[in-house]
Amino acid sequence: MKLPKHIREEWWGKSYVFGCVAILIVTIFSIVYFIASKGLSPFVSGGVGIGELLFGLKWNPEGEPATFGALPFLFGSFSTSLIAALIAAPFGFCAAVFMTQIAPKLGRSILQPAIELLAGIPSVVYGFVGLSVVVPFLRDHFPGQGIGVLAGAIVLSVMILPTVTTIATDALSTLPAGLKEGSFALGATRWQTIYKLILPTTLPALLTGIVLGISRAFGEALAVQMVIGNAPHIPRSLFESASTLTSIITLSMGNTVGGSLHNNVLWSLALVLLLMTFVFIFIVRMLERRIKR
């Protein structure tokens, strides 16, 4: 018995959707399993301790004995990402307020496309701009050679600015018009309405933009690698060279033998990056729940 056309189309549509979802789930679990199997092998059979990797200060994989202290790289990743978020957040929030509350037509027609254009620029371009503009400026006006944590953070702040601005703009645009009208009716000025009503109301969404920006900065490799100096130690100031997890992975992975202890430890660092991504996603989900409430 031949089924009607609309039933067959519905069946094919459901099958296609469920097939795509199944492929995505299998792909995600396969990636996690592959990275975890590689990343856990140094702790299981390589004689490397978790405490040594996460809290060790010395990175010397070619030494006798080899040492794999990744704390300098963890410190470099967190410091550059957090400083970048601190720089990008005020600019992103101010741009979002301007586009939605002060000059919506002008902001959305000129400023928003310009900010979104930043998201499409390749990482290597940001790196070259950092080497050509940021590093010479820091070298001329601050101590050091210009290459260091602050240079990497400035480059990252520009890279995550579209993420922070876009999420803040969407949050401010979805506010009910009655909130502002009620505030104006009570005698509040525009600026009082913005910083006493609008910003506190959208704070969870604004924090979501910051967390996503930090997640984006945490996983960036090439642009930071070009301006941070790639020195495997904890810097004593923002103007000293440092290194990040992504930098040490990209610089060393091609120079190691597959299956060696050094190679597996690099996979352990990749596993740390993956776990940090899960942490950022969990934080974003928690903030989204607060928004829905």
Rank of each mutant, 00 (worst) to 15 (best):
K2H: 14
L3V: 11
K5C: 13
R8Q: 14
W11V: 15
W12Q: 15
V17K: 09
V32I: 14
Y33S: 15
K38Y: 09
L40D: 04
S41V: 09
G46M: 02
W59F: 15
E62Y: 10
G63Y: 07
F68R: 03
G69R: 09
L71I: 10
L74A: 06
S77D: 00
S77L: 01
S81H: 06
L82R: 05
I87N: 03
P90Y: 03
F93C: 10
L106K: 12
L106S: 07
R108A: 07
S109Y: 08
I110M: 11
I110R: 07
P113N: 08
I115H: 01
L117D: 02
G120S: 11
S123N: 05
S123W: 03
V125Y: 01
V133C: 03
L138T: 09
D140N: 15
H141L: 13
L150I: 10
S157K: 04
V158A: 05
I160P: 00
P162R: 00
A168M: 06
L175H: 09
L175N: 06
A177D: 15
F184W: 11
G187L: 06
A188C: 13
Q192I: 09
T193P: 06
K196W: 14
I198G: 06
I210W: 00
G213T: 04
A217F: 01
E220L: 02
A223S: 13
Q225L: 07
M226A: 03
V227H: 05
N230F: 12
N230M: 12
A231L: 08
I234Q: 06
S237R: 11
F239A: 12
E240A: 08
T246M: 01
L251P: 05
M253I: 13
G258I: 14
S260K: 03
S268W: 06
L271I: 02
L273R: 05
L274C: 04
L275R: 10
E288T: 13
R290Y: 13
R290F: 12
K292H: 15
K292I: 15
